Computed example of a mutant assay.
Amino acid sequence: MGALDDALGVVRRNADPEGGLVRFGFPLTLGPVSIPSVLAEFHAAAPRIRLHLVQAHGDALAGMVRDGRLDLAVMIPPPEDLPVVVLGRQAIHLHVADTHRFAGRAQVDLAELADEAFIANPPSYHLRQLVDSWCAEAGFTPRVSFEITEFETIRALVGHGLGVALLPTAETPHGGVVAVPLEGARERSIGLASGHHRPTPAVSRLRDHLVDRASAFAGRLQVGG
C-alpha cells in the first residue's frame, strides 16, 4: 500500500508542473544567508511549489537522499554513490582570535601552526579528517584541545582565545574572530545530490535553479570544478 501511495503521489505531482513538493536538504555550514536568499528567488519564480527543508550533517543528508526521504541535498563533500552536480569549492581558512599573532597576516603556512592548540570537529567529521591530513603533510599532528560538532561554537571558542581552527568562512560576521587564508589550495567540493529515481518537474526546476545560482552561496564557493 505504501508503494502504491508513493506512485500515486508522483503521478499527481507530475500532473501539475507548476506545483508539487520538493524535499530539500542542506548542510549546517550553509543557511543563515545563502540558502534562504536562493530559495526566496525560487519561491518568487515558482510560488506554487512547496518546499520541505531539512538542515543536517552530510552523512545524515546522504542517507535521506538514498532512502528517498529527500529529493535533493547540497552536501560537502558530495557522496560518490549518488548523482551529483558539482556546484563549486569551499575554501577553508585559519580562524584565530583578533588578538592572535596571526590575525593581521595576509596568509599563513600550515607548518607555522605546529605549536598551536586546535579546536576541531570529532575525528569522524570530514573536515576534521582533512585537517588531520593537511597537518600531517605539513609535518605535525594537530594538538586538539577542544572537540565539538558545531562550527559556530568552534568560532566562539576561538574568539575567546582558546585555540585556532580551520573552517569555512562564516556567512555572518563573528565578533572577535579573524579568518586568515592558508597557503596552498585548502578547499573541499560542494555538490548537489539527487536520488536515483526520476525527478518530478518541481524537483527538476529547483535543481536547475540551484545550479544556475551556485555563485550566490554567499561567497563560500569558488565556482567551477
Rank of each mutant, 00 (worst) to 15 (best):
D6P: 00
D5F: 11
G184I: 02
F102R: 01
Q129M: 14
T29A: 12
G63W: 02
F24N: 00
S34A: 15
T153C: 02
H100K: 11
G68P: 06
T200P: 07
R89Y: 14
D6G: 09
P36Y: 06
S133R: 15
I49C: 09
P173N: 05
S124L: 11
A97W: 00
T99H: 13
R198W: 12
V211I: 15
V164E: 00
D208E: 14
A193K: 00
Q222W: 00
L8H: 12
L70T: 07
P32A: 03
P199T: 06
L82E: 08
L167F: 07
R155S: 10
G224R: 14
P47L: 07
G184H: 02
H160Q: 15
D98V: 05
R12S: 09
V177R: 03
V144L: 05
E41G: 15
A170P: 14
V180N: 01
L61N: 07
A91F: 04
P79N: 08
V180C: 02
Q90F: 03
V164A: 01
L21E: 10
E18M: 10
A40E: 12
D5N: 07
V211M: 08
G139D: 04
T169F: 05
L113D: 02
R105N: 09
A218Y: 03
G139A: 04
L157V: 02
A97D: 07
R205I: 00
A114N: 09
A136G: 14
A15S: 15
A97N: 10
P173K: 04
G20K: 10
F42D: 01
Q222T: 08
I148L: 15
P79H: 07
L28Q: 12
L61D: 06
P78K: 09
P36H: 06
H196C: 05
D115W: 04
T29R: 08
P181G: 02
E183H: 04
V74M: 15
V65D: 05
P47G: 06
H209R: 12
D5K: 10
E187H: 13
I148G: 09
V203N: 05
P123R: 14
M75L: 15
A120S: 15
V10F: 11
R105Q: 14
A46Y: 12
A156R: 14
A111C: 03
H95N: 10
V74A: 13
E187M: 09
W134C: 02
A156G: 11
E41R: 15
A103L: 11
P181C: 03
H174S: 06
A179G: 11
A103K: 10
L28C: 05
G58L: 06
A114I: 08
T153V: 09
A62N: 08
G225C: 07
P181N: 03
A156H: 13
H100I: 06
R101V: 13
R128M: 10
L53S: 05
L94P: 01
A202R: 00
P123H: 13
D16I: 08
P199K: 10
I148C: 09
V33W: 01
F102N: 00
D98G: 08
F102G: 00
I76D: 05
V144T: 12
V177F: 04
T99A: 14
V164M: 01
L94V: 03
S145Q: 07
R188C: 10
G9M: 07
I76P: 01
G195L: 08
L221G: 02
H57T: 04
A46I: 00
G104A: 14
P142W: 13
Q107V: 07
